[in-house]
């Protein structure tokens, strides 16, 4: 057979059906913005209830994570995310889903080696690189502080 791999890959790329960019961006924007606006509403309510700014902020995060966990548990999150794309992925809702979904999935392998070990399968990189870049920043901040 006459087969040129480079040319073939070019053709594959060329004729590949693309994701509907405009539609995806529209939903990512509206869902993502909507979730942030919901966060804003929760923040206002918590502040009104007398919480400190910092506690109110944390509680907003916790509330959104709780909602995502419940939606993931009842099987609704993936159906919303199919439409919302990055709109549900990038807010903390996506982080929650990335923790809850493998936990749910690996229940059949047991609570320790299944849920326990796999719960970080997707969210692990986020935690690692957040911690790592934070530590690097801390060292730089400390060293710079010595000379100021």
């Amino acid at each position: 057979m006459n087969f040129d791999r480079r040319r073939y890959l070019d053709r594959v790329k060329e004729r590949e059906r693309r994701s509907p960019l405009f539609k995806n961006c529209f939903f990512a924007f509206t869902f993502g913005g909507g979730i942030c606006a919901l966060g804003q509403l929760l923040l206002s309510l918590y502040l009104y209830a007398g919480l400190s700014e910092r506690d109110a902020g944390t509680l907003v995060t916790v509330t959104l994570i709780f909602l995502s966990a419940v939606l993931t548990g009842v099987g609704a999150f993936d159906n919303v995310a199919r439409v919302a794309g990055a709109g549900t992925l990038v807010p903390v809702t996506g982080f929650a889903n990335a923790v809850v979904s493998p936990a749910l999935d690996c229940k059949s392998e047991g609570l320790v080696m299944g849920v326990g070990a796999k719960i970080f399968a997707i969210a692990g990189p986020v935690l690692l690189f957040a911690t790592l870049s934070g530590a690097v920043y801390g060292v730089v901040y400390y060293v710079v502080g010595l000379f100021l």
Binding site: T58, L59, T61, V62, I65, F66, A69, V70, T72, G73, V74, G75, V92, F95, A96, V99, V100, S101, A103, L104, D105, C106, K107, L111, V115, I119, A123, L127, A130
Partner: peptide, 22 residues
């Protein structure tokens, strides 16, 4: 970051206890 992380882990575990993947 402990608030969010702990919330995700704890809720994740609880959801895994009470729900099943579809």
């Amino acid at each position: 970051a402990s608030g969010g992380t702990a919330a995700a882990l704890c809720f994740g575990y609880l959801v895994a206890l009470f729900c099943n993947a579809r």
